[in-house]
């Protein structure tokens, strides 16, 4: 799983403006999918949290998973990140079936998948720079691996981490303790950490659910800008339909563990929403969806 090969994320992000123009979301099915869900089923006792879910995610796509709480969004994401395993069916990243991973191969797989969490999951007592450097851990080899145990990093890794923080606009916070930052800033540190990790796919578990609308927008803008510039694939659960509409190329609507909608945001009309949610969900407090619309 050589996700590091032949791609320089930092270069791609630095040249973001050009990349934005050239890297269009890939929607054609002729490209082999990054993620394949093949009748993925997850049981909790007698309940089917995921019920034979089949779908594909293509390179460079931004997929939003929407649905009521308890619909299986988080379970699906946890199965994708292999925090939990399937009861039946398969999830493949490229050609690799994640069920067969363990030990070293699982760690290599994780290095290629960047995770963003609702609660940020940064080490709160460490400095911002250390949290970003955590993203480099799986890439270290030889002496650098051992030195990292004492939180010592080569200058080249520190410089890379600083560039990542620069991309999310938090260079002035580098030496602060992470728990002194606001929620929105912490989530941007988490994005910088993923930049440092240089993965192929980003999985987001409600990345903006604990943020206010303005910070949520800032985080989603940052995430989108970076993902598009580097051609990264993003799969994220989003509790607000407006976010999904504004940022996603493709939306999976989950209801009772089944995918009841799989299409472009433009196809998501009120009837479809009713099918997913059992009601038409309210808009965000800043009712104006245009505010959310992509500026890119």
């Amino acid at each position: 799983m050589a996700c590091r090969a032949s791609r320089n994320l930092h270069g791609a992000v630095t040249g973001g403006q050009h990349a934005l123009a050239t890297v269009a979301p890939v929607m054609t099915t002729s490209v082999s999918p990054v993620i394949t869900l093949d009748r993925a089923t997850r049981m909790f006792g007698a309940t089917r949290a995921l019920d034979a879910v089949s779908a594909t995610v293509h390179p460079g796509q931004f997929v939003a998973i929407i649905g009521r709480s308890g619909a299986g969004k988080t379970t699906l994401l946890r199965c994708l990140s292999r925090a939990t395993s399937l009861s039946a069916g398969a999830i493949r990243f490229g050609d690799t079936d994640v069920a067969g991973l363990g030990g070293r191969t699982l760690r290599e797989h994780r290095a290629c998948v960047g995770m963003i969490y609702q609660q940020f999951n940064l080490v709160r007592r460490l400095r911002v720079i250390d949290n970003v450097l955590i993203g480099r851990l799986a890439r270290l080899s030889g002496w650098a691996r051992w030195a990292a145990l004492a939180r010592r990093f080569d200058a080249i890794d520190v410089e890379a981490a600083l560039r990542c923080l620069d991309h999310v606009g938090l260079l002035e916070r580098v030496w602060q303790r992470t728990d002194t930052l606001s929620g929105g800033e912490q989530q941007r540190v988490a994005i910088a950490k993923i930049l440092a990790q240089d993965p192929r796919v980003i999985l987001g578990d409600e990345p903006v659910a604990s943020l206010d609308v303005l910070n949520g927008r800032l985080v989603m803008d940052t995430l989108c800008r970076i993902a598009r510039a580097a051609g990264l694939t993003v799969v994220a659960t989003l509790h607000h339909v407006d976010y999904a509409r504004a940022y996603a190329d493709r939306i999976f609507g989950l209801r009772a563990g089944r995918i009841v909608f799989n299409g472009a945001p433009s196809e998501l009309d009120d009837a479809r929403l009713f099918e997913i949610f059992g009601e038409v969900p309210q808009s965000l407090p800043v009712a104006d969806v245009d505010v959310l619309a992509r500026t890119a």
């Binding site: 994780r110 999951n121 940064l122 080490v123 851990l137």
Partner: peptide
């Protein structure tokens, strides 16, 4: 959660 955040990058 903080431990998971470190393990998730593929760290040993």
């Amino acid at each position: 959660g903080q431990v998971e955040g470190v393990a998730a990058v593929g760290a040993g």
